[in-house]
């Protein structure tokens, strides 16, 4: 018979593995690397479960963020991540729409890391306000404020080509819900 801890961990893995994998993949742009880093996240969760079991995806995302940070230390390595982000977005976009999506990714790459992260958590990872607050270790109100600031920063940084037009095409892509 399994210990409760093991049952809980397997349950956590079944429930959250895909979300964490996608979170990592969106940031590293390489499936194999994402698989390895996601494995690291759950290994850490397993080790941690001995003392303080958790079922919170926000906690897993927090670990994932630091695991990615460990993997991509240094300015040059972090720049690689930005480039992979752009490449990944362009590759994922439909053939006719790659430029706009890539421009969005390039704009994200120009933002401060905190702004970029909260926009990705909200629009790509689909975390709730409470989950973002837990992942970022701040209040839900702060999440709202940070998100607002990040959107303002994005609006200020985005090129003219994004500011007008392309509405229909962007609308066509709006089916990506996680």
């Amino acid at each position: 018979m399994l210990l409760q801890r093991e049952a809980d961990f397997i349950s956590l893995h079944v429930a959250q593995h895909e979300r964490v994998l996608h979170y990592v993949l969106r940031r590293v742009g390489d499936l194999e690397v994402a698989r390895e880093l996601t494995a690291d996240v759950f290994r850490i969760a397993w080790q941690k479960s001995e003392d303080d079991p958790t079922t919170e995806v926000a906690w897993l995302f927090g670990v994932a963020r630091n695991v990615i940070g460990n993997e991509y230390r240094g300015r040059r390595r972090r720049r690689e991540l930005i480039l992979k982000l752009v490449e990944g977005v362009r590759a994922a976009a439909e053939p006719a729409g790659g430029d706009v999506e890539a421009a969005v990714a390039e704009t994200l790459g120009k933002l401060r890391p905190g702004h970029r992260e909260i926009l990705m958590l909200h629009f790509w990872d689909k975390l709730s306000t409470a989950e973002m607050a837990a992942a970022l270790r701040c209040t839900e109100n702060s999440v709202g404020v940070r998100l607002h600031r990040a959107k303002s920063a994005f609006a200020a940084a985005m090129p003219e080509q994004l500011k007008a037009g392309h509405t229909e095409k962007a609308g066509e892509h709006f089916h990506g819900q996680d």
């Binding site: 969106r26 706009v100 999506e101 629009f123 790509w124 609308g171 089916h175």
Partner: peptide, 29 residues
């Protein structure tokens, strides 16, 4: 801005990778 960011999500249900969760768990451990 919401539209743009939403539409640029590189990992969406249509293109998201599907992995063997058991193998992944084994790898994790």
């Amino acid at each position: 801005i919401d539209e743009l960011l939403d539409s640029a999500n590189p990992v969406r249900p249509l293109n998201a990778p599907r992995l063997d969760a058991r193998a992944a768990l084994r790898t994790a451990l």
